[in-house]
Design a binder for these strands. Structure first.
Lengths: 145, 145
DNA sequence: GATGAAACCTAACCTTT
DNA sequence: AAAGGTTAGGTTTCATC
């Protein structure tokens, strides 16, 4: 992870479909040297994937909520992950410090979709209750994912 | 924006560097038909850009927290946005339903960086207090951004 | 959807440090 | 060894039909 790797990542962040020659021209390496570095970055999981930024309206998932999950007793993170993966609306989930066991981000078509997803989460084993904050309007979104 | 466009976008979400031929094989179109559609999706700004998902440690932002913001009185969303933009650690912010006025996601180098960012948030005008949940481990991350 | 020329990817081989 | 450059082939892109 030297300076050249950082500059390659910067370039790919701006355009993940850039060709190796152009990246190389930018940073002063040959195309094949760039390819070798990109391959290594992918193999080392420094680069997790190449993706596309899409107009949110497109997939009809305009409704979002932050939901804290409170469990009964102690639940291992792996177990929690396994059970939360059953709810497709769960876009993100992390164990957190504080009184909640986990924080999730949910995405759905509309409020009704959110409601059914929340019912499913509350019916999962170990889950005691949840506490939701429905997103009213997005103020800031600085993409670094 | 028909079903084929959706399937192209799904494919690109999984791998933004996929070639047109492979996408075509997946959905039953020729490479050139796929290219025309992708070009159109980009021109129409349905596809906003192609980017890369990188290990957060790489840019030294391995520590993450969800933070609820509670304000004194009522604050307009635009005003809240303006003041939160002053804190670079705020990666995401939304107004939310419930007792908090906003939910933020913060990213920083380490816990100390999080602490100073939180101090800055609490010192902003209108902000009364905050409630933080520091991420211990990420369980799920289904990318839809 | 097909065609073909230009551009690109990629792996093997060579050079340099 | 480790990292970059060069070459050459097969593949992909992309404008045109």
């Amino acid at each position: 992870m030297d300076n050249l790797d950082h500059r390659i990542i910067d370039h790919l962040r701006r355009n993940a479909r850039a060709n190796y020659g152009d990246i190389g021209d930018d940073i002063g390496l040959s195309a094949s040297a760039v390819k070798r570095r990109v391959d290594r970055l992918v193999a080392d999981r420094v680069i997790r994937g190449f993706t596309v930024q899409v107009d949110p309206e497109v997939d009809g998932l305009g409704t979002e909520a932050y939901v804290e999950v409170f469990c009964r007793g102690t639940v291992a993170p792996g177990e929690l992950k396994r059970i939360l993966l059953n709810v497709p609306e769960v876009v993100e989930a992390s164990t957190v410090s504080g009184s909640a066991d986990a924080m999730m981000r949910l995405r759905s078509r509309d409020i009704a979709g959110l409601e059914t997803a929340l019912e499913r989460v509350r019916d999962l084993p170990h889950v005691d209750h949840t506490r939701s904050s429905i997103v009213l309007s997005k103020l800031i979104e600085r993409n670094r994912d």
